[in-house]
């Protein structure tokens, strides 16, 4: 139990009559990178939203970092150590990189309530360190996000999640809107996170990317987890079979 970072038991979410997620049992161990795959509407994003507190689950239990948790909102989840790279990035376009990294948790020189003086040097230093740690290359830290490419923005968003000694990072299709080189850059960051032993849940449609990056693949279909396979025990065709429903997976799961 001690090396399990995240565990869900019978996690279920109904939207009215729609059973978006049913009895999902999921485990993530320390330092492990897991991919969540599945067709559109298979329940991937629903699953992520229950874990990050964006939505409230219908039924089931979640343990995080050894404790049972009930997050009232995404901010609570973040404070507990779950950092999420949202699809819409959640960056402030008109602020520079350090300001975005430290948005809402600024380092302060003198505490004067809302008028606290910012420790800009320390934030800049910490930003540089974070970028080195995640191997993100941003040419000019004082440039605003507005002036950056999609890839650079995504890198800033990822660097932000990695800056704050988080216990779990969740990325929801981080490369969906990126070009080839930008995708490569984001993948490099994910590899660096792996080297640093930071656990990660990666939601992705990209089969090559998933096989390149993660240790384990979990397939969702029609709101249920239909496969939970170590990378070396499977291949692309097998995964596609699970995603499309050619293989049901119930027998394998029970056998395992």
């Amino acid at each position: 139990m001690s090396d399990i970072v995240l565990k869900t038991e019978n996690l279920t979410k109904h939207y009215g009559g729609v059973h978006a997620l049913q009895e999902a049992n999921f485990e993530l161990r320390k330092g492990e990178h897991v991919a969540i795959m599945g067709d559109n509407g298979a329940g991937k994003s629903t699953f992520v939203r229950q874990i990050t507190g964006v939505e409230q689950r219908t039924d089931g239990k979640i343990w995080f970092d050894g404790k049972e948790v009930n997050f009232a909102g995404p901010i609570e989840a973040r404070e507990a150590g779950i950092e999420t790279v949202f699809q819409n990035l959640a960056l402030a376009d008109d602020l520079d990189v350090p300001s975005n990294l430290f948005l809402g948790r600024e380092k302060v020189l003198f505490n004067l309530g809302p008028f606290s003086i910012l420790d800009r040097k320390a934030m800049r230093k910490a930003t540089e360190a974070a970028l080195v740690r995640t191997a993100v290359k941003i040419p000019n830290l004082s440039s605003t996000i507005r002036h950056m490419s999609g890839g650079q923005r995504q890198c800033v968003a990822i660097a932000r999640t990695a800056t704050f000694a988080s216990k779990l990072i969740i990325m929801d299709e981080p490369t969906a809107a990126l070009g080839v080189q930008e995708t490569a850059q984001v993948e490099n960051i994910i590899r660096t996170l792996k080297e640093n032993g930071e656990p990660l849940i990666l939601v992705s449609h990209n089969m090559r990317q998933v096989f390149d990056l993660v240790d384990r693949i979990v397939v969702f279909r029609r709101g249920r987890i239909v496969a939970n396979l170590r990378k070396q025990d499977t291949d692309g065709n097998d995964i596609v079979a699970y995603i499309t429903g050619a293989k049901t997976g119930q027998a394998e799961l029970q056998a395992a």
Binding site: V132, A135, V136, K137, P139, S149, G151, A184, N188
Partner: peptide
């Protein structure tokens, strides 16, 4: 940081 070429991705 500015010296690292790692993951520059053409940016």
């Amino acid at each position: 940081v500015s010296q690292t070429s790692h993951g520059i991705g053409g940016l």
